[in-house]
Amino acid sequence: MIEKPLIRLAVVGLGMATKPHLDALAELKGRVAVSGVFNRTRSKAVAVQEKFGFPVFDSLEAIAADAGTDGVIIATPPNQRSEIVAQMAAAGKHVLMEKPVERTLSAAQDIVALCEVNGITLGIVFQHRFRQAARRLKILVDSGELGDLALVRAEIPWWRDQAYYDVAGRGSLERDGGGVLISQAIHVLDLMLSLTGPALTVQALTATTRLHKMETEDFAAAGIRFENGAVGSVVATTATYPGEEERLVLDGTKATAVLKGGQLTVTWRDGRTESVGEASGTGGGADPMAFPCDWHRDLIEQFAVAISENGPAAVSGREALRVHALIDAITRSGQSGVQVDVESV
């Protein structure tokens, strides 16, 4: 464990997605320091100050100029990311950013390249990788204990009511870059790719169901071929009431692993079984933030260590491009109705 503050982080953007970050930073007190928070609506920053005691910055320029700030957590809507990252990278501030990297694959690539040119550590918040059950599954895959991967099934049967999409810009191309794929399913898809390796081709269907009025998709289904020879499927939606836990199934030649929410069950062909993890909310129902802050806490602490030791973030910006490329391919295939290649990143 870290015994003293490694870095001082500022938090930019104090919307809904910031809650687990703030709770995690409070738990990390004494190990990671908060140099201040900033929000364009100052009243939100003052409310956070009153609750957590974190200082308030008056502007992005003040954060960039602050010698005591080593990095920033950016939790703004996606359409604000490029400008903020450019400003912070120019000032030498490392960046831990909420998903997605940007609204499109090309814009995400630009951000990653910008940080690399400036020598900035760029980490992306894919907290599902930090669940105990997901970590155990990663070990089983990497060690070969599941055997050769044959089939992959990702199911994200989540729910968002219309009020969620009535918030200005939510589910739009201009602000978010898409619907269920880039805003919700991206977490499970990133975890999937961290286990399977890159996807090769996609055949998809995307749609907006009659349950929502929104610009982009609330349903996506895709068949995928992976570079390692496995095949698989993805079904993602925010139109399943009242919402269920996501499920990721890996069928190998030696065992089948089922990761449902925060619980992993492995059944080997020789009759052995293993269960890891515990039931916990994942944000799949009416409350998108109904999950603990533990995963964010571990992710932020790892980011602090990465900066201190000049190492990579747990999920770097460049690694995050893989899930952006997959989402881009699913979207293109859904629009064209034909199989498409996943861009190599």
Rank of each mutant, 00 (worst) to 15 (best):
S333F: 02
V235Y: 00
G169V: 02
I2T: 14
I156N: 12
L28C: 09
R297K: 12
T201V: 05
E319H: 09
I74W: 08
V249F: 04
L181P: 06
T104I: 04
D66F: 00
V152I: 14
F291M: 02
P100Y: 11
E155V: 08
I111R: 10
I84A: 07
F226C: 14
G13C: 06
G223D: 15
R247Q: 05
L9Q: 15
F219I: 11
A47Q: 14
V249W: 08
V48Y: 01
G337P: 11
H94N: 15
R42Y: 02
A62G: 09
D298H: 10
V12W: 14
Q203L: 08
T265V: 03
I300M: 07
S82C: 01
K29Q: 14
Y165P: 01
E145F: 02
K29L: 00
R8C: 08
A10E: 11
I186E: 09
A220T: 08
R135C: 05
A107Q: 13
G232N: 12
V167K: 14
G277Q: 12
T121S: 13
R153C: 06
R322Q: 14
V305A: 04
D23E: 11
S233K: 07
I327S: 03
L6E: 12
E215D: 10
V249G: 08
I84K: 12
R297N: 01
A67R: 15
H324M: 10
L326N: 11
F303T: 12
I139V: 09
S336W: 01
K19N: 00
T41F: 04
D148M: 08
A306K: 13
H94E: 12
T201W: 07
R272C: 00
G53Q: 10
D70L: 03
E343G: 03
T206N: 06
N79V: 08
A163E: 06
V234A: 03
K19Y: 00
L28K: 13
D66Y: 02
Q203T: 12
A185N: 10
P157Y: 08
D218E: 03
A150R: 15
E27W: 01
D23T: 04
L22G: 06
Y165S: 02
L22P: 04
M88Y: 09
V46F: 02
V32M: 12
G277A: 09
Q339C: 07
G285F: 00
V11F: 09
T273F: 00
T206V: 09
T18N: 11
E3G: 10
Y165L: 05
E274Q: 03
A17Y: 03
W295D: 14
V231R: 13
Q132E: 10
A207S: 14
Q263I: 10
L264N: 12
G281Q: 14
T208G: 01
A325L: 06
E102M: 06
L248C: 03
D294R: 13
T76Y: 00
A199Q: 13
S183C: 07
A325W: 14
L259M: 07
M289F: 00
Q80V: 04
D166R: 15
G232Y: 06
H324C: 06
R247K: 12
E116P: 08
N228Y: 02
A220M: 03
R170P: 00
